[in-house]
Design a protein around this nucleic acid. Structure first.
Length: 273
DNA sequence: ATCTAATCCTGTAGGC
DNA sequence: TGCCTACAGGATTAGA
């Protein structure tokens, strides 16, 4: 379940194996994932050298001189660095070969995506799918005022606003519930009704929880090079997510699970008003 | 301009 | 034991 921290941890993990390395081959084992793979992808990347890696929201960027490879992990995707000629298994959809190693994309549910943009680094914001994305939460510019000003006419529940990604990116279903608990906000509150002061608390909660998750995930970066892939989210200690019917860690009230826009929301009715 | 619902797909958990 | 259904996840898209 990659949210922003897992994508960033992935980027940090694979980056040393990519940057300044030349792509020597590309293997596609199906026509595409969520969307078809770019038709001429091999021509675009094979022979090219990776300049840098980046991230925009939950999109992983692999930057070449002539363009940028955009990878989205969907909800079940993950990437590993493996020795060349490692046999592919079910759901291994793409290999980017770099000399003696390869970057392998695995995604059982195929909600992920592999895209190409014919412009290097700076111009990536022009890519259609990235154009409507909200602000990066882990930047100096992001704060409560950003949330406040963007939501003056938004009646949508604050939980669903966070998830929508057009105000702030990278907050998935887990961290939406968690950040609202930390800031003491009821997930049903219409976005336009929250005060600046409460949005300041929410913005700080989002930044802290995402940064902490990256730190924790970063401690298992080596997992991206090897057989087992997935990185250290197991020990995550959530306040409300997936704790339906269990006592709130602050007040012992039983945690409620509800549906908002087809998605589960977890919250404490006493701590979150 | 906003918002809601449907959609993509597979693995897993729960009910019978 | 095995079948069946519901659900989980992100984010675009179409429709209200």
């Amino acid at each position: 379940m990659p949210e922003l921290p897992e994508v960033e941890v992935t980027r940090l993990g694979v980056s040393p194996y990519l940057v300044e390395q030349r792509v020597t081959g590309l293997v596609l084992r199906r026509a595409g994932l969520r969307w078809p793979f770019p038709a001429d992808l091999a021509q675009k990347v094979v022979g090219q050298t990776v300049q840098s890696t980046g991230r925009r929201g939950k999109y992983l960027l692999i930057v070449f001189k002539k363009g940028t490879l955009i990878i989205h992990l969907g909800m079940s995707g993950h990437i590993r660095i493996l020795p060349i000629h490692t046999p592919a298994q079910l759901h291994d959809h793409m290999d980017i070969v770099l000399g003696e190693q390869l970057l392998r994309l695995t995604d059982p549910r195929r909600f992920g995506a592999v895209l190409w943009h014919d412009a290097a680094d700076g111009a990536i914001e022009q890519y259609p799918l990235l154009q409507r994305l909200g602000m990066e939460p882990l930047t100096e510019q992001f704060n409560g005022a950003v949330l406040y000003t963007a939501t003056r006419h938004r009646k949508i529940a604050v939980k669903q606003m966070l998830l929508a990604g057009d105000v702030v990116v990278g907050v998935g279903n887990i961290y939406a519930s968690e950040s609202l608990f930390i800031s003491g906000i009821n997930p049903y509150t219409p976005s336009s009704e929250l005060t600046l002061a409460r949005y300041k608390k929410l913005a700080l909660a989002i930044q802290k929880i995402l940064a902490d998750a990256i730190t924790k995930g970063g401690s298992s970066l080596r997992d991206f090079v090897g057989v087992d892939g997935q990185s250290g989210y197991f020990q995550q200690n959530y306040y409300v997510y997936d704790r339906t019917g269990l006592p709130c860690r602050k007040c012992n009230t039983l945690i409620q699970q509800v549906k908002q826009g087809q998605r589960s929301t977890f919250y404490c009715v006493k701590c979150q008003k």
